[in-house]
Design a protein around this nucleic acid. Structure first.
Lengths: 201, 201
DNA sequence: TATATAAGTGAGTGTTCACTCACTATAGCC
DNA sequence: GGCTATAGTGAGTGAACACTCACTTATATA
């Protein structure tokens, strides 16, 4: 029997299935047929809701953007000191990745980057959002004295992002063989404190 | 006119072309036809030299493994202190990436990881080689007093790798819009010295 | 110089994929 | 209960792709 739902619900189901499939097989190998099966539709029906496959990805990016905004807005209220805020942001991002393992695969996908300028810009936009968010907290901590007075804020934000992405990459490729959240917190500790011996200089 | 070369030369040409194409279009979008055109052969001729496409990737990984071994053997002789050695290793790796922009795309490719267990193991092996190499130097520096006495060496090595990979990712996706070598050296400075203010604790 | 061997080719094949189209069934409204 | 708008379908289509095959041509050496 044919189950008929309204368009908005189906769109959400497709977005959801796509995110889940992204972590299972990788974004480049998601086919419209796989999405259809995951949602319980015929392949042709997918194209009722999204005229082109690219439009599915655009919707996924919109969904992610909305989630990020939500999370960061909620989180800003909590912690007091900039360093604690930074840790909370990183932890939050890692928890989000743990809950949505497809996310890093999407952000890192060369496929999505090169197939369409729209998607490239969308992904770059997400990363910029995060960079600005981090830079704001780092700047505060620098004024505050919690971070080094001569800290190069934009570069430090990039270092934090690189840490998260490098970690997420290893996590994904290892088949999620370790806990990305606790491992990420340790990595951040190292980056904040430094590896060099404290006795020198 | 038909140009005929011996098999070994053709294999090298194919490996070379594949590495170059990996940076241009990404590993997952390299077709045997594109490789054939790059080398100046018909598509069918590619299969004279490699029975399956997977074999081309295996050969590329072998080539990379040999290059790494070469470089690291040559480099060990140079620098004196562990910290300088670490910096030299990272710099060397970044220079290698700059010269072979396809490398990070290959190492990060989910496609290659999931399509074949042989390739997955090959890539994991390359990363392990690098991890061991870094851990050795960090261990030395820890004994030496240049690095923190309580440094968690394997984790620190992972942090360095994450930094390089995260940086390489941003570099690739940005269309190589900055100098990965100098940017990487600054990032390493930050990770070694730490971001937190020195006045605290 | 004849011959064997190996490098090369054009023209396929089967599969996978995004996307189309003519048609059908259902929900919501009058 | 009948009508309309729209979610849904099965059966395509054409393009891209890895890989095959029967056949050709160049090279090394007996």
């Amino acid at each position: 029997m044919r189950i008929r739902k309204n368009a908005a619900d189906r769109r959400d189901e497709v977005i959801d299935a796509t995110l889940r499939l992204a972590s299972d097989v990788g974004p480049e190998r998601i086919t419209t047929d796989a999405i259809a099966k995951a949602v319980g539709l015929s392949q042709a029906a997918v194209f009722r809701h999204f005229p082109h496959k690219e439009d599915i990805w655009a919707a996924v990016l919109d969904w992610l953007r909305a989630r990020f905004a939500e999370r960061w807005a909620g989180m800003a209220a909590g912690e007091t000191s900039p360093e604690r805020r930074l840790r909370a942001i990183v932890r939050g991002q890692l928890e989000f990745i743990r809950a949505n393992p497809g996310l890093p695969m999407i952000l890192m996908s060369r496929e999505l980057h090169t197939r369409s300028e729209l998607l490239r810009a969308g992904i770059a936009g997400l990363m910029e959002m995060f960079h600005r968010h981090l830079a704001g907290v780092l700047e505060e901590g620098k004024r505050n004295g919690e971070f080094a007075a001569d800290l190069d804020v934009p570069r430090a934000a990039n270092v934090v992002i690189a840490l998260i992405q490098g970690l997420a990459l290893r996590w994904s490729l290892s088949g999620r063989a370790f806990d990305i959240v606790s491992e990420g917190e340790r990595a951040l500790d190292l980056a904040l404190a430094g590896m060099a011996s404290r006795s020198r200089n």
